[in-house]
Write a protein that binds this DNA or RNA. Structure first.
Lengths: 197, 197
DNA sequence: GCCTTTTCTATCCATGTGGATAGTAATAAG
DNA sequence: CTTATTACTATCCACATGGATAGAAAAGGC
């Protein structure tokens, strides 16, 4: 009934993910998107509704994947797991390609002002989900007596959010290769200091 | 010998500071710069060498001011002062206009990739100066016996950098008015927890 | 009062942007 | 095979950008 597309949806999104990572939303032109995704500007308009709509689709896909595969598991993570998770972000590839271009959700906080509700909603999703994971992990650790009495899970989760966002910023700043590692080690040490002894 | 400029250097920089805050470097066009600074695009070219050079001048001015007036004082700050300094950033105007548009140096980390050595140098200046202040404060507190033996000043300073950058990111994310306050409180509590009891 | 120097005004320019459109090619239902 | 539907190719467009340039205007030295 209709002509087939040269590039299927999934691989187009995959290509876009990579490009938006490297160039950022504003830095990625629609011409580049054509090349990297295999889509045409025409298809970008007609079936996705333009550059921004397509970006939102890409961001949604990223978040789905991150929540499923890269966020800390609220049902199983111990404090040690959490500490190692932080270490892993600075060292290699916990979030995909983080060492090159960071987390796409974090990048969205940086590169958009808050004028677009659609983008804001994704940022909110990112932060609240992450915070929920942290709270769950701290609460469980607490109920198992694995954490100091003074550590409040809600405050602790907020600290963890900030420590994570700080890590992303440090990695983006790239003043040295050592800084992210040292910082992550310090953050991990902080978490481990919450354990009951 | 020569015609006088409509706008002097200092007030031009002040106007530019405000504009770059609100719009970011890439978002501030040279036409807007004309309006907000009183400079003409001609003067921007001839005496400052273009938009980017002028931005760097503005950023330098900002950093000078921040170091003199807004960074924590390494000679006098106690841990309590440091905790309150963090609280102040989230609450009002520790760094100028931070509640509107954040810190210009932080924004530079976010909105530039690392391809420009001139910008990188400013970012490095920002982070190393800040880290030096933190180390100095922690070391002095330590030598006065005001801090736990387990707290390492070097690691602690890195944590503080991350906590601060995290706070800026949280403020930029603007998911709620409460989040920055709560987060800053948690960070301040962490610092206060370093005190000897 | 002229002259040199610098800024100002007013265009002009090349480039890149996201998007629109018209005509063509492919694809599957009938 | 015809036809409807969708995607592809190739332009075209309006707009905004940073920057360049030429001539007028100010301002102080002589």
């Amino acid at each position: 009934m209709a002509r087939k597309r040269k590039t299927d949806h999934d691989s187009a999104v995959a290509g876009a993910l990579d490009l938006f990572w490297r160039r950022g939303y504003h830095g990625a032109s629609t011409r580049e998107l054509e090349q990297e995704t295999g889509l045409t500007r025409f298809t970008l308009q007609t079936t996705y509704g333009g550059k921004e709509k397509f970006f939102l689709k890409t961001l949604d896909t990223y978040l789905d994947n991150a929540e499923t595969r890269h966020f800390p598991d609220p049902d199983t993570y111990s404090l040690d797991d959490l500490a190692n998770w932080i270490r892993g972000i600075a060292s290699d590839e916990r979030m995909p390609k983080i060492e090159d271009a960071g987390c796409l959700a974090f990048n969205s906080i940086s590169s958009f002002d808050r004028s677009d509700p659609e983008v804001n909603a994704r940022i909110e999703r990112y932060l609240t989900t992450l915070e929920g994971r942290f709270v769950a992990i701290l609460n469980r650790a607490r109920s198992q007596g694995a954490v100091h009495a003074e550590v409040d899970p809600v405050s602790g989760a907020k600290l963890l959010i900030g420590l994570l966002l700080g890590l992303h910023t440090i990695m983006k700043a790239r003043t040295s290769d050592q800084f992210p590692l040292r910082y992550a080690e310090a953050a991990a040490g902080l978490i481990e200091g919450w354990k009951n002894r």
